[in-house]
């Protein structure tokens, strides 16, 4: 496929890939390149990157261990905190119970005292009421005797005070 156009430009003919005159050149430079890359990689780049990666891995492992330790500590701290909390709670419950008992005692004493006072007052009042009742009964019989005596006098019947009193007493009883 040798055309004038390509020939004029001084270019290779057809497929440059199959222009075997350039093969030694390419192969030579390829080998040089590969050797350079191989030495740069195996001497400098790969050991360095490998070391960095190993470093990082160990750092991460250490950090993880430290983190694990801290976590352990945190768990312990939480446990002791919970313990303290439980202790405080029982203490508080105890104090509450004690206070309640004391208050109950005071209350009971006060109630008993109040009951006694009330009982005393009630007895006193009963006595007073009884007195008043007695007074009232006596007054009723007196009034009745007086009225009876007056009535008898008014009717003109002579009767002594003794007879009237007995009659009134008998009436009042009956």
């Amino acid at each position: 496929m040798a055309t004038e156009a390509t020939a004029e430009a001084g270019k290779a003919v057809g497929m440059p890939q199959l222009d075997f005159s350039t093969w030694p050149n390419q192969i030579f430079w390829l080998l040089v390149t590969l050797v350079v890359i191989y030495f740069v990689l195996s001497r400098i780049a790969l050991p360095r990157i490998g070391a960095v990666l190993a470093d990082r891995k160990s750092t991460i492992t250490n950090d993880l261990a430290a983190a694990e330790e801290l976590k352990q500590k945190a768990v312990e701290a939480e446990k002791s905190y919970n313990e303290a909390l439980a202790n405080a709670r029982t203490e508080a419950a105890k104090i509450v119970a004690q206070a309640r008992a004391e208050i109950q005692k005071d209350l009971d004493a006060a109630t008993a005292k109040a009951d006694a006072e009330i009982a005393a007052k009630a007895a006193e009042s009963e006595k007073t009421i009884a007195e008043i009742r007695d007074g009232a009964a006596q007054a009723v019989s007196e009034v009745a005797r007086d009225v009876a005596a007056e009535l008898v006098a008014a009717l003109g019947v002579g009767a002594d005070a003794k007879t009237v009193t007995a009659a009134v007493a008998a009436r009042l009883k009956g």
Binding site: A5, T6, A9, K11, A12, G14, M15, P16, Q17, D19, T22, N25, Q26
Partner: peptide, 11 residues
């Protein structure tokens, strides 16, 4: 219309 697709591979 001149296409030389292989010229880019010339050594």
């Amino acid at each position: 219309l001149q296409i030389h697709p292989m010229d880019q591979f010339v050594v």
